[in-house]
Write a protein that binds this DNA or RNA. Structure first.
Length: 157
DNA sequence: GCCAACGTTGGC
DNA sequence: GCCAACGTTGGC
């Protein structure tokens, strides 16, 4: 069992949309490091902190779970998609995605500033300078701390 | 809107 | 394989 954090801009795909969809395919990741994490490391049942970036304030909104392991990101093959990549092909798909499902909304969203101020989160990748990865690892301890800050008992998951 | 940090591209 | 130029991310 591993723990992850995934970023989404709320005006692109908000947490509320995941709740209403139930589950979704995480298309559009075009960064090799993030792809490798999805392809090699994310397993069904892993928990995911759903993070809203590029908003005021940035915050963790809810807990999701991986419900399908990596498979080709078909938007890379779709010429009509903003995520189209001419270097990807059906025989040799360059980009991968996983599916995630909503698990629990945090009773209180957890703002980035609060996370920075919490010494229990020291070393969390999200808080490192210049961190831009849209899919990143979270330790179990940090995962539980963030849940707690959001008013969610992680042992209830 | 600014800009620091980082990733990618492409000429050489 | 180096590295300058450029594009993107994302907090502030």
């Amino acid at each position: 069992m591993a723990f992850w954090l995934m970023k989404s801009e709320p005006h692109v795909y908000p947490w509320e949309q995941l709740v209403s969809d139930g589950e979704t395919h995480w298309d559009g990741v075009r960064n090799y490091q993030a792809r490798n994490i999805m392809r090699d490391d994310m397993k069904v049942g892993d928990f995911v902190l759903f993070y809203h970036s590029n908003c005021k304030p940035p915050h963790v909104a809810g807990v999701a779970r991986v419900c399908r392991e990596a498979y080709p990101d078909f938007t890379a093959l779709d010429t009509d998609s903003n995520y189209f990549d001419p270097k990807s092909s059906p025989d040799n798909p360059r980009w991968m995605m996983v599916d995630i499902e909503a698990v629990e909304q945090l009773p209180d969203t957890v703002p980035l500033g609060d996370m920075r101020e919490n010494p229990e989160l020291n070393g969390m990748p999200l808080l490192q300078r210049g961190q831009r990865l849209s899919v990143q690892p979270v330790s179990e301890q940090h995962f539980e701390t963030v849940c707690g800050m959001g008013g969610l008992d992680p042992s209830s998951l």
